[in-house]
């Protein structure tokens, strides 16, 4: 292989005049973090609502939860982003479509919302499993004490269900971060996008993607560690994995 290794490339100025190549990668990392954070918030909130709906006694709520989950998990993420980014503005009324196309940072919002909805279907399924894994008597006991359905979920079922699904939820958080890389296809210059441009400007493909790999690994290591601490912090003394 004829390849000129050049690890010093990171400290050379990039052709955009925004500093060094390293600065370029770091700005991509910042955008990755921002996109992932917003996507995760959306995934957690809507996923929790839909997950709860799937466990309610109401047929209508079950049906909605089922339809929502199947819609968002049965289509490739890439296709979903294309739908949101290219198709949606065309099928909306002209004015709304135009407004969407001219939205500043459109790739960012599309990526965050698209990845968020995609991941929310997964959060919903896990929360549903967590709630269903609780003894049936827990809900009965809450009901028998006079708690309403909302109170029963808020004070009894959800605190336990979330504790139970915390480990798989960690995986979903990591997936959310990694899935933002797909947004390169709609022109978002996140970490993968910036590594790609660095390769194109400098031809140092191995250095660029080695750096991107290390940055992804570092971010995910931080998330995994933080979630471990959270797991330990909310552990219940004497209960399953408790101290």
């Amino acid at each position: 292989m004829n390849y000129n290794w050049n690890w010093g490339i990171f400290f050379q100025p990039n052709p955009m005049g925004t500093g060094t190549y390293l600065d370029m990668l770091l700005s991509g990392l910042a955008l990755t973090l921002k996109t992932a954070a917003l996507a995760w918030v959306i995934a957690l909130i809507t996923g929790s609502i839909v997950g709860v709906m799937r466990t309610l006694p109401s047929k209508g709520a079950n049906w909605f939860g089922f339809a929502y989950v199947e819609f968002f998990r049965n289509m490739p993420l890439l296709v979903q982003l294309f739908l949101w980014f290219f198709v949606l503005p065309e099928i909306l009324p002209r004015a709304a479509g135009l407004w969407l196309k001219q939205l500043p940072n459109a790739p960012f919002w599309t990526a965050a919302i698209g990845v968020g909805f995609f991941m929310s279907a997964r959060v919903a399924v896990q929360l549903q499993a967590g709630i269903s894994s609780l003894p049936r008597g827990q809900k009965m006991a809450a009901t028998a004490l006079g708690l309403t359905t909302v109170q029963g979920y808020r004070y009894v079922l959800l605190p336990m269900a979330f504790r139970i699904i915390l480990p798989p939820l960690t995986s979903e958080f990591l997936n959310t971060i990694k899935n933002t890389a797909v947004a390169i296809t709609i022109g978002l210059l996140e970490l993968t996008g910036q590594a790609r441009s660095m390769q194109e400007f400098s031809f140092q493909v191995f250095e660029a993607f080695t750096a991107a790999t290390i940055l992804y690994l570092l971010v995910n290591a931080v998330v995994v560690t933080a979630m471990r601490f959270l797991e330990r912090w909310v552990a219940i003394p004497g209960y399953i994995t408790g101290k």
Partner: peptide, 16 residues
Amino acid sequence: RSRVGMVFQHFELFPH
């Protein structure tokens, strides 16, 4: 229900 106390076979205390 809040005026009717109920005790279950499996206690059903809230573990958290």
